[in-house]
Simulated assay, not measured.
Amino acid sequence: MKKILCPGLLLIFCLSFSCSKGKSETQIKTDPADTAATIAKGADVSWVTEMEAKGIKFYDKNGTQKDLFVLLKSLGFNSIRLRAWVNPTAGYCNTADLVAKALRAQKQGFKIMIDFHYSDDWADPGKQTKPAAWASLDFATLSATLHDYTKSVMNTLKSNGITPNWVQVGNETNDGMLWEDGRASKNMANFAALIKSGYAAVKEVSPTTKVIVHISNGYDNGLFRWMFDGLKANGAQWDIIGMSLYPSKTNWQTLDAQCLTNMNDIVTRYATPVMVVEVGMEANASAESKAFLTDMISKVKSVNTNNGLGVFYWEPESYNSWQGYGLGAFDTTGKPTIALDAFAN
């Protein structure tokens, strides 16, 4: 998700899908081995190589320059999330860049999540643009191409000694992906077919890797029921349901409570673990952000039957409004704010 957007428009878009369907029998089963005693405390740092190329540096709280991955490890993080773009113009987040960052994460002992956007650029609730090379494909070929691309990236990671713990097939797919063919509100069966293609590709290379389907607005139970009832009815497979949550410094307590209610409903309704794969708050509200993160981590740990698996901060290393993003968790001098103290415990 590219975080240069209007929260109001995003809310309106997501609420438009807040319709519930009847409760159906559970089909997806929880894997007991996936309910770890220690949850994933993660950060998406996909911007890091681009920031470093621009001369941006990172410092610990004492002002000592540090490699970002080393610094995050010292702050209590244990997992790293990295996005994958098909053919980005500047090269960042392509497969080679993805592998370079994953190797750095692995060197520090991090668990790794790969986030396939299935686009050449940002994919989020407001846009799910096909990669340029896929634009004219018929649907059967599009689905097969998604499968082959996913498998190719997974094999490239494997050949470099990297086995992701988790893989997202799509990013914030509130209305599906690869529009218009995979737009869920117009053709849920097509979206489900794309999810099945991505799921199969991941498992063919790495059967132990958990596959995540991710949508935003973790407080919106109606949205989640609409999406996952629809996917389930169309035979899609997933291992974990992922969500985003971006509250403000004034509404975080309300949204956290609603998010916990939603997570518990998901666990019961689909017998599926949940993970908060994106969070963030205004960089200049570090005290409120620390309170929000502390509470969110606590709530995830409290999810029924230990099926809350983790919390990931989206691009915390961003500072001085890098690329217009104001929800990082580093101060203007490149040091982590107190917000990230929430990940220490």
Rank of each mutant, 00 (worst) to 15 (best):
D120P: 01
K23Q: 14
T38I: 09
T173V: 12
G170Y: 03
G55P: 08
K73Y: 08
V167G: 00
P164L: 07
A133R: 05
G42V: 03
V274A: 11
G310E: 03
N190Q: 09
S143W: 06
N251Q: 10
R225M: 12
D138L: 08
K130M: 08
L10W: 15
K29V: 09
P32V: 12
I162S: 01
W238Q: 04
D44S: 04
F58I: 01
A102Y: 03
T145D: 08
T250H: 09
A236I: 04
W47S: 07
A342H: 05
A96R: 05
I297G: 01
A189L: 09
E52F: 13
V202F: 01
C19W: 15
V167K: 04
K335V: 05
I338F: 09
P32Q: 13
T35Y: 15
K196V: 04
A84Y: 05
N155G: 04
P88W: 01
T333K: 13
T89E: 15
R269I: 11
K299V: 10
Q27S: 13
T30Q: 11
M154K: 00
K3L: 13
V70T: 14
K186C: 12
G198W: 02
W238H: 07
S248I: 10
N62A: 13
A193K: 09
A189D: 10
I39W: 03
V277R: 02
D181N: 11
S159M: 10
Y92C: 10
W252N: 01
A233I: 04
G308H: 06
A193T: 12
L82K: 00
A135N: 12
N284M: 15
N171Q: 01
G63N: 15
S136H: 10
V277W: 01
K127M: 15
A339V: 00
L5E: 15
Q237S: 14
R269W: 12
P131R: 06
Q253K: 09
P7V: 04
N62M: 05
K232Q: 11
V276K: 00
A184Q: 06
F330V: 07
Y270D: 02
T95L: 11
T95W: 07
A100K: 15
T150W: 09
P164F: 02
K186V: 13
D67I: 05
N94P: 06
M275S: 12
